[in-house]
């Protein structure tokens, strides 16, 4: 499979999780207000979908440079020092991933051995929480890739496109529309 296809799939999964969560809560309101009924399992399902959404999406955030951060200090450093700092930052992020992978492995293993299920859905807990492993593994992969590029001088470190820039990006088209 080509990288393009993989990228499309990744984005589709993220969009699907967000839309599914939204619609599930929306349907819940409609059912209760319109029909005086509801599903007991929907709350647990929506909460888990949103957890999947975030953990699966964290690595995508590294790819598109969307993580929130402060790089004011690093920016004033001379070039070589900046590259060193960036490499340390990415390496530290890898340590973060590694620790969480280890923790998740132990946690999920314990839940697997005890064999309990989710509260309202007949799904084993270790499956429902398994996204911890998947998410952090994907994140570690992306970070390794980034570290490689920083070391080779192809990347400067995490690009921070904070919430500010996102909002801006969305509104920009709108402003052009208004100017016309």
């Amino acid at each position: 499979m080509s990288v393009r296809v993989l990228n499309r799939i990744e984005e589709a999964v993220i969009a699907l999780l967000l839309v599914a969560t939204t619609l599930l809560v929306f349907v819940d309101v409609v059912l209760r207000f319109g029909f005086g009924t509801g599903w007991l399992w929907s709350q647990e399902l929506t909460l888990h979908l949103s957890a999947w959404f975030v953990l699966f999406g964290a690595s995508y955030g590294v790819k598109v440079g969307a993580h929130i951060g402060v790089d004011a200090l690093v920016r004033v450093l001379p070039r070589r020092a900046r590259r060193a700092a960036s490499a340390v930052a990415v390496a530290a992020a890898l340590v973060y991933c590694g620790l969480f992978l280890a923790g998740s492995w132990i946690y999920l293993g314990k839940m697997f051995r005890i064999g309990i299920e989710m509260e309202d859905l007949p799904v084993p807990l270790w499956v429902a929480h398994g996204i911890l492993l998947v998410g952090f593994a994907l994140l570690a992969l992306r970070l390794l890739q980034l570290l490689w590029r920083v070391l080779r001088g192809e990347a400067e470190g995490f690009r921070f496109a904070d919430e500010a820039e996102e909002s801006l990006h969305l509104a920009r088209g709108e402003a052009e529309e208004a100017r016309r």
Binding site: E11, I14, A15, L18, V19, S50, F53, V54, G57, A58, Y60, G61, V64, A66, H67, I68, E163, E166, S167, H169, L170
Partner: peptide
């Protein structure tokens, strides 16, 4: 899709 992906990006980062 673009709007949904933008929102997803911001949400993921904020929730993370």
């Amino acid at each position: 899709r673009g709007v949904v992906m933008e929102a997803a990006k911001v949400s993921i980062m904020l929730l993370f």
